[in-house]
Write a protein that binds this DNA or RNA. Structure first.
Lengths: 340, 340
DNA sequence: CTAGTTAGGCAAAACGTTTTATGCAATACT
DNA sequence: AGTATTGCATAAAACGTTTTGCCTAACTAG
């Protein structure tokens, strides 16, 4: 038997009251005398009683458990090379913060597929990581009426319940940083997903090109392709002629790209500067170390939880919330000219 | 309303059968004709019916959801410095593998405390990370009769359902590696937790000392103390006189220790070699890079799931399972003498 | 003194499943 | 022909809560 055995009936019997009284006493619901409430509570404590989650879930809607829909669990799967922990790490941090608020966190893969875990639709709400345009996951949640917040805006959907780094602001800062270091032509290496993160960087990038009159040089590469994907882009860029700087969305792309450029005689940062929109071990370990933005997952997780709790309690929330990234300026964008 | 609305009754009505027939048809349980089964299934599909997890959980024990008790969520909390992802990363990998077997994974903090999430005791089973001696978490699971497996043996408890790296074997390999590189006296920097990982290394270490006649020089430092903790140990070691090599349990301790030694004029690996029993970014980035063992979390997660599923299905399992670590020999243990 | 209110308590319904026990044909056996 | 057996289907019980509606006794107001 899995159940601990002690039910509300046992408590009621031992306390000499009805099960209604027990339920009311423990949940501060009906009208129970202070004396009875106290007695019931003591008995429940003694017996180690804890209401069965399923029985309770059947009656009331809330079960104090939320789902976390992590894309990397589907996309990466087994392929979790050292240094790629963005999502896994966020999961841990998010869970720790949720638990501090009394919420369990259930990790859920793709709920848009066939085999959906039984618990998936029984959860109180969801946090969805980096939704894409026309995301099937948010669509399902929407249809089922399950409240959700997203890490990153979902492009094309009107929804205020999201939090993320301020991507547009970060993009401008990155471009400005490179420009200040002497870059006149900049190439952008985007990821392949159509999420806010990629789209907003692209938008700011094109605005920058328009403003400065620089040619738009945009390359796309699946984020999962990693270091090798970066190298591949490097070859394309060389074929097209070198820009003054390359802005990569991921640290792994940046590292792979830089290494490939160097193997072909290009000197970083002298000939070209490299910048990563998201930091990673590969970026930090590269020689020269690659400048990058580092995030504050704890802050973002907290913001998401604020919104989710608001949503669960009142049905609305005061999102979106934006957090700031921090620039780690490293040697890959430190030009002699800018040091002079 | 959270519930999707379509219940087993709706399916029964539309298919023109009893709810019993529906339940049996969908779960391959009772005696239903092939024709009826097919019809029911089609109707259920059409209506998008999915059995309510709570209602189902009330009747049968299994709900296809397991808990993952991660210590780092309690211990580390907010403090998740870059480079320390062992547990978080394991959570992600474990979840991905569990989901491939149709199991949801719920992250659970300390279930030994007061405020236990309602879902915690309703789960089918648990995976507990690195239990300590007299671990309160396993004690509670034991008392409640909830099946569980542990990542790492729990010292002092007779329990076969665990998997982990083969710590004793790894310890011998590390000591042998250092000895082969010329080390005659070795210091061991353990963590403070009384878990199998720390204890088995200590045991093998003392056995090695006994065999070679070397003095036992064991230092203890909380694993959470990180790089600074390593530096602190370095000062203690210097005060006691330098050994030929230091074997640290964590990469962060090793890195902090090495840096502190170097700042005091000690040259690595010439004067002293440094080895980390668990790899980390700090170990990889140190100069010289620190030799370390890297794990195969995917393999261990798979083994744990094998055992857990066996346990859920039959009540017993064929554990324990041991996985191998891989040695990353780096410059911190590469002596001129051993190269000659 | 009587009618109305209130505080405290309880029985029973409801939640949506699974499981158990039972019924009814139709077929097989003696 | 009468009796087991089998195949299919169902009604009803059970799971452990929360919630609804009702009851009683005690108090309050007139």
């Amino acid at each position: 038997m899995r159940r601990s055995g002690v039910t509300i009936r046992d408590v009621a019997a031992k306390a000499g009251v009805s099960i209604t009284a027990v339920s009311h006493a423990l949940n501060d619901k009906g009208t129970v005398s202070a004396a009875t409430r106290e007695r019931v509570r003591r008995v429940a404590e003694d017996l180690g009683y804890q209401a069965d989650a399923f029985a309770r879930g059947m009656r009331q809607s809330r079960i104090d458990a939320v789902g976390l829909a992590i894309r990397s669990l589907d996309v990466l799967g087994d392929y979790t090379p050292e240094g790629v922990y963005v999502f896994d790490r966020f999961a841990g941090i998010f869970a720790a913060k949720a638990l501090a608020r009394g919420l369990s966190v259930t990790l859920v893969p793709d709920i848009s597929g066939k085999a959906v875990p039984p618990l998936a639709f029984a959860l109180d709400g969801y946090a969805v990581m980096t939704p894409q345009e026309d995301d099937p996951v948010t669509a399902i949640l929407e249809r089922r009426g399950i409240p959700y917040v997203t890490y990153g805006r979902e492009p094309g959907r009107e929804h205020r319940a999201w939090a993320s780094e301020d991507d547009a602001d970060a993009a401008r800062k990155a471009l400005h940083h490179l420009e200040a270091a002497g870059a006149r032509s900049i190439a952008l290496v985007s990821g392949a997903d159509r999420n806010a993160w990629n789209l907003e960087y692209a938008e700011e990038y094109e605005a920058w090109c328009g403003r400065t009159g620089a040619a738009v040089r945009r390359y796309s590469q699946p984020e999962g392709s990693g270091v090798e994907g970066g190298a591949e882009v490097a070859r394309r860029i060389i074929a097209d002629g070198m820009p003054d700087a390359v802005l990569c969305m991921t640290g792994r792309h940046a590292a792979g790209l830089q290494a490939e450029l160097q193997s072909r005689g290009v000197v970083v940062p002298r000939d070209v500067m490299v910048f990563a929109a998201s930091d990673s071990e590969q970026a930090r370990m590269a020689k020269p170390a690659i400048s990058a933005f580092s995030f504050s997952p704890a802050e973002t997780a907290e913001a998401l939880l604020d919104l989710l709790v608001q949503l669960l309690e009142s049905g609305t929330c005061d999102g979106p919330r934006r957090t700031k990234v921090q620039m780690r300026a490293r040697a890959s964008t430190r030009r002699a000219s800018s040091e002079a």
